[in-house]
Each structure stands twice: as structure tokens, then as C-alpha cells.
Design a protein around this nucleic acid. Sequence first.
DNA 1: CCATGAATTGTTAGCGCTCACAATAACCTC
DNA 2: GAGGTTATTGTGAGCGCTAACAATTCATGG
Lengths: 347, 347
Amino acid sequence: MRHLQLRPPTMADVARVAGVSHQTVSRVLADHPNVRKETRAKVLRAIEEMGYRRNSSARALVTRRTRTLGVVASNTTLYGPASTLFALEEAARAEGYTVSTVNLRKLVVDTLSEALDHLGEGGVEGVIVLAPQRSAAEALAELRRPYPVVAVGTGSGAQIPSVNVDQHLGARLATGHLLAAGHATVWHLAGPEDWQEAVDRTVGWRTALEAAGIEPPAPLQGDWSPLSGYRAGQELAGWVGRGLTAVFVANDQMALGVLRALREAGVRTPQDVAVVGFDDIPESEFFAPPLTTVRQDFAEVGKRSISLLLDLIEGRSPSGVEGVQIEPQLVVRASTFPHSPQPGDPG
Amino acid sequence: MRHLQLRPPTMADVARVAGVSHQTVSRVLADHPNVRKETRAKVLRAIEEMGYRRNSSARALVTRRTRTLGVVASNTTLYGPASTLFALEEAARAEGYTVSTVNLRKLVVDTLSEALDHLGEGGVEGVIVLAPQRSAAEALAELRRPYPVVAVGTGSGAQIPSVNVDQHLGARLATGHLLAAGHATVWHLAGPEDWQEAVDRTVGWRTALEAAGIEPPAPLQGDWSPLSGYRAGQELAGWVGRGLTAVFVANDQMALGVLRALREAGVRTPQDVAVVGFDDIPESEFFAPPLTTVRQDFAEVGKRSISLLLDLIEGRSPSGVEGVQIEPQLVVRASTFPHSPQPGDPG
DNA sequence: CCATGAATTGTTAGCGCTCACAATAACCTC
DNA sequence: GAGGTTATTGTGAGCGCTAACAATTCATGG
């Protein structure tokens, strides 16, 4: 097997076989224009024959470019982070970069710092941090590293360059949709206070209500999990008949729990209570009933993040504090209207 | 900002400041025992002061070790692959390795080959491929690379070293559970034929039935998605009252679709039809009803895969065809027994 | 107080590659 | 066909580090 071979061929070996200098081999590999066609062919043949691969370490040493980016993430089994991660890697690869990932169980100062060091030792040219928790965002603002860092999901108020979906807008879309359907008010099950996205969604919901001259009811709080949604749903069920006809839930997983609790309490969705979620996870369409929710364009988040990071690496933009905002989109299903699209309908 | 500085300090710079040779700096960094305590302190102080970081490319060039592993995956927004990816990275980092990932939309010969090349150019010492499709497994057996490769999820019959959850056992557990509950037979909604895991689950199901002297009904087929489960569920609903009382569904997402279709057809779960899934995704506990399913220990898969790959890299084991098997576990909930644990119950 | 070996430090030589520059070959133009 | 381009190839240096070996210092015992 090749990988047990004592030593892989070097550029000099190829040069010897092809009867040229190592520099010519380098030129062929770099697609330099000034190489005669026959010379190029000779070199390529030798490369093919010997199974030569350029040594990336030697190359990186002299060019000072590793063409590697780092990503720090947590909760990667959730749909949002997983989707973002996917898009990030795809966008980076399209630009010829390799992506090294660190998945953290908890994103706090210590673990973040370690992660950045680990990636630094791996020679990354820049790092993207998926940092939805506010604590992480703050930590990030303090931790200086010898490479640029872009934050995703920290909210646009952060002290460092960041890319975000406009959560405030998403929440307004969701709340406005329910108000437009004739609901007198909209209740809210919020995500963890420590998450910027949760806060932004809550503020957006409140803004939409206040803009309509409605006093917002006190929001409930969950932890993103279906279980916390289930418990909140049990509480919400107690308010049915006393002014509760619509709920905006801060993510789809909690909405799943809410739906289940309502159903168990004999409350019908959407006839008695309409429910809107956030994220549009693939399962949402198959909830009982299919869930109206807010879709975030993670692919776009990935592309824009990589683009911003590369700008910073190349020094193309003043490395100040830039914030990219991406617009979310409302997806209407049966949890707010009984005659909305059913599973299997186009779209 | 530091990353705009012209040139980061080198080992020689540190040596000059500390008043020693660069080799002594290297010794301090390598924790070499024969360095005087005061010398070590001097060097560390200089390193700290100058913000020195060892250049990984230079180091990799001379040691011929990049301490980087590659992972090729697809469908990373699904719970299984995402969990495996997480575990893989964590295990690798614990061993001091960095992980570079390539996420593919489709895992076929061409994309796999490109991905392996991309990682090879990044200088990986070995690669783990999450290759649940049989086509990918076959492609993998042909593609020779100058570094060792470990496959995950290809099934143990593959021609290359691999790590797998014992899908056959999982299917037998699920089917056996239903038979033990008194069902005369168990129907099956299978995953895509091209997936080894799907095939293994189907074979396990059939084996369990035949061992009980039962002629297996023709299995239905889905594509892992809730939608395909929904459609299969509509078909299954037509068989209720004609011998269908239990279904083993090849994954939880399809089971979600099945549950929904049954409910819409007025079929009660588990009273009329019991349903078992596979994977134990976090949402399963909150389905209507909570889903009995088979849990796979992805963390263990990750650890064992990394361990096997490192063995291969270090040449610690005969680089033949080894296969590691991991046992799955049945999780019983209300979709097979009405009085099983409810959401929020301990465990 | 010098010999002896161990502990500590320094020197030298690459790792495989790209860059800057030098050298040569090929092609014009008048 | 001299003089000047321009295309093509080669040479030498050095990126920052570790490994091997050489040199120095230090402790110790007789």
C-alpha cells in the first residue's frame, strides 16, 4: 500500500525523471503561462507516473498561506448550526480553502479560548465562530488572536465583524401574520435569555404588538427543547378561553412540545389556538398540524460569512466592525390556517 | 491588531530575546527534560512577551506529521451523521489532532474522489468517511489514497477497515419487542435500498420474523424523509383490520410521517397499530405518541473510529480489513405501549 | 584539584517548496 | 545578421522548524 512507502516523491524527484529543474515542475503545477507545451506534458507524465502530490506543509511554509479556515461551533446536532456548518464548509471549499472544525459542548470563555488556540496551532488563517449565546459573544470581543475572526449569530450589536439573520424581522413577520389573521393578541414562548437570537425574537414580537397598540402579555421561557415547550404548552393551555388564541414560539422544537401539550389538553390547533414556530426544520411540515414557521437562509449565512472572513484575511476591507444582515422568510402552514398546504403539496 | 503585523515572531526571535539558542526554545516547547529551570522560565517569559506561536507548517514539514485528520460526510443535517461528526471531532481533538471536514451533497465516486483529494492537499494523515450508501462503500474500496481510510456505516462486509453499529441486532430488538408484545406479525417500512444500514435493518427484521416461524409481509420502501413515511403510512392504514397491527419503521423521521398518516386515517397508535422507529432523535420523545425506537451510540462510534484510524496511521495494526461493531439499544415509549414513559419523566 | 560522566546548551544541516534573479533560447525588426 | 525583445528554463537562497551531533558546563569522587 502506498501509504506504507518509505518516502513520497518530491518535486526534485519528479524533476529528475522529467529531465527538468524543480522550478519547472513548480511552474507546471502553478499553471504558469511560460512553459512550453511539450515540457508541461513531460512533467505531467512524470507526476502521473510517480503519483506525486505537492507537500502542503512545505508550500504553506514558504507562501505563508495555509488555505485553512477554522470554525468553532456548539450544538451541532441542532438543525440550525448543522445547516450553517454545512454551508460554511461548502462556501470555503468553493474558494479553495479547507475547513477545520471544533465542536464544543459548551461555548464559554475557557472552551472558546482553547478552541481558538487549537485551531491556531493547526495554522488557520481565520476563524468563524457560531456564537449564539450572548456570553460567548462577549468573550469573543475580548479574546484577541493573531488571525481575523467573524462571529455568526451574535447579533449585529457585537464588537466584532458578524453575520446574522434578522431575528427581529422574523419575529415581526410571525407576530404580524397572527395579528393579520384577526387574533387580538399573541403570546410568546421565548428561548433562553442568554441567547441573542432569543432576545431579538422576543423584542421583535413585542415591537410588533406595540406597533399595533397592543399590550404584550408576559412571555414564557423555554430552553429550545421540545420538553420545555411541552411544559410551557401545559401552562398556556390554562389560558385558553381567557384571551389566548395565538402563540409565537421561538423555535420549532419547542413548538412541537407546545402542540403536544395543547392536544393533550383538548385544545385544537389552529381552531382554538394558532401556533407559529421559528427555523423551519425539515420535520415541521409533518407536525400535527404542520407548523407555520420562519425560515432562515443558512446557505446564505454561510456564503456571506466566508466572504466576509476572506475579505478580512486579504485585508480587502477596513477591519472595523461590520455586520451583515440576512432576511428570514415566513412559511405559512396549517398551524395558523386549517386549509394551508398539507404534506406532499408542492413547495 | 496583531494580525496586521508584518511578520509574526519566529523561534529565532524568541531565542535572541531570551538570550539562548533557538534549539533551547524548541526544547522548552517540546517539554524536553534537560533544560535548567531558570532557562525554561526565561524562554517562557520571552514567548509570553512576544506572543510567540510555533509555526505549524514548518513543524509539519520537518516532522512529517500534520496532526490533521479528514472526515468526509454527507447529509450532515440529519441527526445521525451530525452526532457522529461531533463525536469524531471530539475524539480526535482529545488525541491532539485537528479535523478537517468535507460535507458532500451526494456521496458518489466523483465527489468522494474530489473530497479525498481536497483533504489530501490539506495534508491529512488519514481520513474517515461516513459512507452509509452502498455505492459509496464500493467506490471507497477502489479509491486508493496515500493515507489510511476508515469507513463508518458501510456495514462490516466492506473491503476496507470500518466501524459500524450492529443494525441487524437493532432491527431484531425492535421486531422482537413487537412480537413479544403479542403481535402476530410485524410490517416494515424500509429505507432506501442503496443504504447499507437500510438493508441491514430489513434483513434483521426478516430474520427475527423467520426465527419466530412467521412469513414476513412485503416491506414498503421510503427515502428516510418524513414525507415518504407519510405516504407509506397512508398505504399501511389500508391494511389495518387485515392483519396489520405493528410496524417497524427504518428511521424516526419516516416514523413521524407514518404516525401522522395513521392518525389522519383514524388509526390509533398504539391501540390499533404499534410503531417502532430507529435512531432515537431528540424529537422522538415528543411525537404523538412518543416513539419507541432503537438508540445508536454515536459517541462510541466516533471514539472507535478515531482509535482505529490512529492505529492505522501509527502502523500499530496489520492494515488489513478490520471491522468494529457497536451494539444499539431499544428505547421503549408509548408508541408500542400506552403506559410507557411520558415526556418529562426521568430518563 | 583534575578526571569522568551527566546535564545542559549550541551548531549545523536539511525538510520540500516558492521567490527573485540569472541564464539561455527563440523570435523579431530593420 | 546585429541588436533587442520576449519566451523559456535554471540557480541559489531561505521560509521556520526539528534531529543529530558537537560543545560546553556542572557535579562528583578519588
